[in-house]
Design a protein around this nucleic acid. Structure first.
Lengths: 201, 201
DNA sequence: GGGATAACAATACGAGCGTATGGCTTCCTC
DNA sequence: GAGGAAGCCATACGCTCGTATTGTTATCCC
């Protein structure tokens, strides 16, 4: 049911995710949806939570893989952050759902809470990555990790917005996505200028 | 009527801006609202357009004032960009309205068109500022203006999101807004490292 | 000064929504 | 093997919304 809700919102917005539409999309009756979710708000909140968890789990898996390969933190972040960008149809769908709930969060406190927690996890992971970078020599000791996390998470979400509008747009001979990646790479390079000196990682 | 629509959306979201609510808020009858707007979509689009125009006009006025005072381009941008941030109640309202329509733009092409145009104006102004900076010596000649505009506009919108959630949040002894301004200042400083050498500006 | 046109209001209508209700099957448990 | 919970469905109810309809009052132009 959450998957059906996700599909409907991704395809036609929150307004399209009515009880009847969700039931039809999921192949069930309206009554059954009510049997599992006491209200529509509960259904929407569950679908939102689940999508956020999926996104965070994917990122966590990429981090784990990067650490297993002993990649520098800078490289791990560079591969993780575009995971939240609308680069293929699946992630464009996630972007649409996230955007719809981002607006809903302005008026529904329970949604705002989930959005806040998700954002805090992302910021926290970036800040922790910077702290780890200090220990292994990639990051200058004096770097403000919280500030770096604020800038980088703002940049990632802002670039996601820019990328969504014109996915086909090109600047000269390069697609926009490459420019966005280059921007992110440069910014990461300024926060992670050093080489990791932990050979056992 | 557009002002009433703006107030309703800012206070309780797009769903609260019904025909009846707008009419009541504006002090008119439903029939009169229909007399001026053929449909609800038309009303919403008009209100959205008007708000975007107001924002762009405010920024344009700040740019003109800065130019009249012969301020460096870097300083003008540093004062203009936070104009789009939710720093006081009026601009928090604008942020809420903009966010609501940002989500609606995913499903309504006419809204998407306005959003695209507004974003293009902002990006264009930043890119033009960078080009002007090259001529007057504030910007290195090799700088990619379009790329700078992409990064800076993404950063501004991303920071707006971060600032909205916790307006009271502090990092140590400083409020979050000061960190955001410092980030913006540093980024502008990296794109505008030089001094303006046009004494007649 | 009269007739079109615009400003403005009251209300009716039909559609779509979330939810409540009642009932039917399936399956496990004691 | 009886009974109760859980899975599942169809439908009715009440409400709200956008819009259509029909009107009344003002304004303005020739």
């Amino acid at each position: 049911m959450a998957a059906a809700t996700h599909r409907l919102i991704a395809h036609a917005g929150l307004d399209a995710a009515t009880m009847a539409a969700v039931a039809r999309e999921a192949g069930f009756s309206v009554g059954l949806v009510q049997h599992y979710f006491a209200s529509k708000d509960e259904l929407l909140l569950f679908a939102y939570k689940q999508m956020s968890e999926h996104q965070l789990a994917r990122v966590a898996r990429m981090v784990a893989e990067g650490e297993a390969d002993a990649q520098p933190i800078r490289a791990i972040l560079l591969r993780c952050m575009p995971e939240l960008w609308p680069l293929d149809e699946a992630r464009r769908g996630e972007y649409r759902v996230a955007t719809a709930f981002h607006a809903r969060a302005l008026d529904v406190p329970t949604v705002a809470e989930v959005a806040r927690e998700t954002a805090a996890v992302v910021s926290g992971q970036i800040a922790r990555a910077v702290e780890n970078g200090k220990e292994c020599g990639e990051v200058e000791p004096g770097t403000d990790a919280e500030r770096a996390a604020l800038e980088l998470s703002a940049l990632v979400t802002g670039l996601a917005d820019e990328l969504y509008g014109e996915p086909e747009r090109r600047r000269g001979d390069r697609p926009l996505i490459e420019t966005a990646e280059a921007i992110l790479k440069d910014r990461l390079g300024s926060y992670f200028p050093g080489e990791c000196h932990h050979y056992d990682r």
